[in-house]
């Protein structure tokens, strides 16, 4: 059976992509941010995952408001970077782990999830940035991917508990998958930020640091919070953090925090990561 290698939570702020594209990796503004990811990059490179399941939200790039999927699952053989307004970024296409994705599709539908099953899909910074933060900018990605997309733009958005339940389902799907592949599950989005309204620019580093400290050891509170609680505490776009609950929900009750990092503000966003491993 397949193995959950680790759970990783990370920001996917588009300014991170812009900084990389402009060669600002080692600038005064950005170096501390990027340096904080190096230990996790090294750990992942050393453990050689085969598949990355990336949970993220589309930001009005692959889906429009004419048809908003509450949950979508990619089952494609390949995903191209989306054109977000500046043309597609020069990152390699992503190769889909189509076998595992279809297995997951079967498990989701049997387990009473109702995904939009996508065979043609471009992926935006929500997936690109986490992949770059974990794997750098290789000529070809060292893992195959399975994108899981969550609507966090148009209300109603899914509840935190639903995200947790999806994590439980993913856990079962990994356990029942008949290969010995190693799977890295990446919950992305956040941390605190708000792009819209008179509260624009709201960030909450204290809440962010607490999230990073507790999402591994003591996630119960975050699972019980309402969607509005997330908006209040983390900002309207900070509510993206619910997607980390899919990653956390697919892990054991007891996990070890291997690495963590926090930096604020990255552009207008609290940013950072956590790398978790099941206790054994």
């Amino acid at each position: 059976m397949a193995e959950l290698l680790a759970g990783l939570g990370t920001s996917h702020v588009p300014s991170i992509a812009a900084a990389l594209d402009k060669g600002l990796r080692d600038s005064d503004e950005w170096k501390p941010f990027f340096d904080g990811y190096v230990p996790a990059q090294d750990w992942v490179a050393g453990h050689k995952p085969d598949i990355a399941v990336v949970i993220f939200n589309d930001h009005g790039n692959s889906f429009f408001l004419d048809r908003v999927p509450t949950l979508a699952l990619g089952v494609a053989d390949e995903y191209r970077p989306a054109d977000e307004g500046w043309g597609p970024r020069p990152v390699p296409n992503f190769i889909g782990a189509a076998d595992f994705a279809w297995h997951l599709a079967d498990r989701m539908v049997e387990g009473h999830f109702d995904p939009l099953i996508c065979r043609e899909l471009d992926v935006d910074h929500g997936m690109q940035v986490p992949m770059e933060l974990v794997f750098g900018r290789p000529d070809a990605w060292p893992v195959k991917v399975v994108p899981i997309l969550v609507n966090t733009i148009q209300y109603p958005i899914p509840t935190p508990q639903r995200m947790w339940d999806l994590g439980r389902l993913l856990r079962e799907a990994i356990a029942s998958y008949p290969t010995d592949e190693k799977i890295l599950v990446m919950g992305t989005g956040g941390l605190s930020h708000q792009l819209q309204g008179a509260r624009a620019g709201f960030i909450n580093p204290q809440a962010d640091r607490e999230w990073i400290a507790k999402i591994g050891a003591d996630p119960a509170r975050y699972r019980a919070m309402s969607r509005e609680d997330y908006v209040e505490e983390f900002g309207s776009e900070g509510a993206e953090l619910i997607m980390w609950l899919v990653m956390r929900g697919c892990m054991d009750a007891d996990v070890r925090t291997l690495h963590q990092h926090y930096f604020a503000p990255a552009s207008m966003t609290g940013a950072g990561m956590v790398l978790l491993e099941n206790m054994r």
């Binding site: 930001h59 009005g60 307004g85 500046w86 148009q154 792009l195 819209q196 008179a198 624009a200 207008m268």
Partner: peptide, 24 residues
């Protein structure tokens, strides 16, 4: 919604933090 209207800032360059400041 900012995720859509941001595409205007790709055509007529405006930094996101100025867009934030304007709203605030």
């Amino acid at each position: 919604n900012l995720f859509y209207i941001l595409k205007i800032s790709a055509v007529d360059p405006t930094p996101i933090r100025e867009i934030g400041a304007a709203q605030a």
